[in-house]
Design a protein around this nucleic acid. Structure first.
Lengths: 182, 182
DNA sequence: CTCGTTTTTAACCACCATGTTCAGAAGTTA
DNA sequence: TAACTTCTGAACATGGTGGTTAAAAACGAG
C-alpha cells in the first residue's frame, strides 16, 4: 500500500498533541508505517513538523476564508450567525491545532503565520466593534484573544470527551457574546 | 554565594515557558549558576520539574484559598468582587503557570493536582449557578473551563506585554461575566 | 586568618533519538 | 510473469543530553 502524506500528518498530530517531544518511531507506530518511510517523505524531523504546521495553518485559513471581507452589517444576529459558522468550522480542527500550541520551536516562527491566518477574524471583530455591535470599553485585541481563549478551552473539553463539537461551538459563541451571568 | 532553590525555579520556569524541552545547561545559564549545582539541589531532571510544578501548584492553591468555602450569598456584586480578587491574585502567576500548560509529562500526572487546586473555584461557581447568579443553560464544568480559558488568554497577553496585570484581570472578569456584546 | 561548606571546572560514561545506507520484501503496473 | 516502485528491517554512525565523579576554587562564619 502506498503511504499517503496525510496518513503521516494525522498520526503526527495525534501523537505530538499528547507529547510534543514524541519520537519519530512513535509517530511511525501510530501511523502504522516504518520509521524509514517517514524519512522518504520528510528528510528531517523539522521538515515533518513544518509540513504539519503548514497543513494545519492552511486548514485554519480555509475556514477563516468564510469570514466576509466586506463591512459587517449593523445587524447583530447576522454577526452572530457568521461567528457561529466560523466557530463550527474551526471546531473539528482541535486535534490538529493542539500541537501548534505545544511545540514551541515552530510556534515562534509560526506566530507570524498564526497572526496572518487570524487576521480576517480580527478585522471582522474590529469592524463589528466599530459599528457598535460589540462593547467599546475593551481593546479589540482582547476581544480576539478572549475568543481564541474560549476556543482553546472548547477544544480541550472536546478532546477530553466532555463536550460534543456542535455543543462546544455553541458554548463558545454564547459565552463570548454574553458571558456567564444570567 | 549560596544558591537558593527559588533562584533555580525562577530560571527554570522562565526558560521552560519558552522551550519545554530546554536543556539543564540552558536553565543553569539562565539562573547564572553551573549545571552541576542543579544536580546538587535536584538529583534528576524530573525532580526539578516536579519541584517546579509543585511550587506553582502551591502558589495557585494559596490564591484559591481566598475563595470562601461557605455558600455564596445571593448578591451578584459580592460574587463578582471575590471573583475579581481571585483573578487579580492569579494574574502574577502567569509566568509560573506557562510551563504547566506546555510540559506534558508532568501535565498528565498533574491533571489530578490541577483539578484539586481548582476545586474551590469550581465549587464556588457551581454554587453561584445553583443560586441563580449565573446562567443555567450551560454546564457548570464549561463555566469553569471558559474562565480558565480567558485566564490563559490574559496571561498570554500580559506575557507579550500587550496588557498590564490589573487591566488583564479586569478584562477577564468583565468578559467572563458579560461577554463581548454591548 | 582559618576551617568547613558550597560552587565550579573538567573529564567521563551511558543512553537515546536522529539520520544514513542498503538489501530485500511487498506491492503495483503492464 | 516481468519490470518497476515503494516500503521495510536492520545495521551503523553521530551528536547531544542526563547523570556521575573528583579536585580545585570561591565563599562564609568564627
Amino acid at each position: 500500500m502506498v503511504v499517503k502524506n496525510e496518513q503521516i500528518l494525522d498520526a503526527a498530530a495525534e501523537v505530538l498533541a499528547r507529547r510534543p517531544d514524541a519520537t519519530l518511531q512513535s509517530i511511525a507506530n501510530a501511523a502504522g508505517i516504518s520509521r524509514t518511510t517517514i524519512f522518504n517523505k520528510y528528510p528531517t524531523r523539522d521538515a515533518l513538523l513544518d509540513a504539519l504546521a503548514l497543513d494545519t495553518l492552511m486548514r485554519i485559513g480555509h475556514v477563516m476564508a468564510q469570514v466576509p471581507s466586506e463591512e459587517p452589517s449593523g445587524r447583530l444576529d447576522e454577526f452572530i450567525e457568521t461567528l457561529a459558522e466560523i466557530t463550527a468550522g474551526l471546531m473539528p480542527l482541535g486535534p490538529r491545532t493542539t500541537f501548534l500550541r505545544l511545540v514551541p520551536s515552530h510556534g515562534n516562527d509560526l506566530d507570524d503565520h498564526w497572526a496572518d491566518v487570524a487576521t480576517p477574524l480580527a478585522m471582522y471583530i474590529g469592524q463589528a466593534q466599530a459599528h457598535g455591535l460589540l462593547r467599546g470599553d475593551q481593546p479589540a485585541r482582547w476581544l480576539v484573544a478572549s475568543y481564541i481563549g474560549l476556543l482553546f478551552a472548547a477544544w480541550d473539553e472536546v478532546g477530553q470527551g466532555e463536550l460534543g463539537a456542535t455543543q462546544a461551538a455553541r458554548l463558545v459563541v454564547e459565552s463570548w457574546m454574553s458571558g456567564a451571568s444570567r
